[in-house]
Nucleic acid binder design. Sequence first.
DNA 1: TCAGGGCGACTCAAATTTGAGTATTACGCT
DNA 2: AGCGTAATACTCAAATTTGAGTCGCCCTGA
Lengths: 217, 217
Amino acid sequence: MRMATSSTRLMILGVVSWMQPVHGYDVRRELLSWNADKWAKIQPGSIYHALKKMTDEGLLEETGTEQVDGRPERTSYQITPRGRDVFESMLRQQWWEINPAMDPFAAAFVFLPGLPRKEAAAALRHRARMLRVTAQGFVDMNDTGRSDVNKPAYVKWLFELWIARSEGEIAWCERIADLIESGAPYMPERVDHPEGWSEFARRTGEKLPVGESDFEQ
Amino acid sequence: MRMATSSTRLMILGVVSWMQPVHGYDVRRELLSWNADKWAKIQPGSIYHALKKMTDEGLLEETGTEQVDGRPERTSYQITPRGRDVFESMLRQQWWEINPAMDPFAAAFVFLPGLPRKEAAAALRHRARMLRVTAQGFVDMNDTGRSDVNKPAYVKWLFELWIARSEGEIAWCERIADLIESGAPYMPERVDHPEGWSEFARRTGEKLPVGESDFEQ
DNA sequence: TCAGGGCGACTCAAATTTGAGTATTACGCT
DNA sequence: AGCGTAATACTCAAATTTGAGTCGCCCTGA
């Protein structure tokens, strides 16, 4: 049995273990209240699948179904001993291993030459501003104690992690924006794919360091 | 037509646009050489699907199939004008919008009380060490110029972004490890789900701030 | 000379994720 | 009194991702 450690499974197992017995809708609401759809990519739809799957695998078990008023029937789950073991081992794995967070901005940054220098620099400064605003928002939330009293206090620490990372990134954005504006070269001295590169960058007016750019003539 | 901006599509469109005409295997190798399977979660398998899908959508077109020696036949692709437009608009979207990177560690940190304090602190210090080593690796790669000459020079800048973020995170790890060791409380003064909480944390020996923990007499 | 491993280039079934749909009740508002 | 909207609790088809499988050539070493 594969027993992959995906964030989805970890979070759902964890929430069930914390709130059991729970039904799918409660798990969903809890995760949404953590904004987990944004930072953990958990869409409501996948929760029900995961609950059923893990029940099949013996990590969860149904505690029965109930019907309140005329509302839809709902199935509640609780964790099994085996589920608890698996949860703990997945948890340890995530705590002890470094899993590079996949970052859509990195994916886009790789194509820097696809944008005109002016726009790239502007976008980076905009990013710095946005990060500052977001970080400040976290700071305020932590300071004013406006955070939900029922939520664990250490979510505050999680916010502080995001703030810490943001600070480094903000400085980086400004510095790279400066570099780009000052015309720092994108390519190394010798290029191997000048055609591909020139075709790619044609629209942005980027100049090649070598190769006399043999298109356009 | 939905035209979702996923990193996968962005990266594949970008690589095709840069190296065209290309066949799937080349795209795959290029992306693997960027370690994109790690930080962008692009498995070889999804590349062929994306190529076909985008061809159906008119963003790419086949430039024919060739057969070298007795090797398998391969299909080459190039980008269409519409594909180029879509690529640029997806690229802009990723450059101008902030998409919180989904972070498996955050998903695990949320369950902090699932680990004994000693272990949590140790894991955080371990994480700090690992981040330091990785960051130092990037620094060395950038300094010694050992990076591949054919790769764009600005991947160096991308490494610097990871270094910048790591620095903030390293400090955070140490600070939070101290906090955890010093017994800083996890929960706010008033708790709403004491049962769930206590059951969840029972194994770690965590104490509740309130509720006289009515299990275990 | 020939077995074994690796590379080139996909293919394909199975697992998972997405997001829209469904059906009923409650609730506010004019 | 009636209407639109939101909440409750899922269900389900379609899209996507995963990762193992395939199949023949080439190379290396015994």
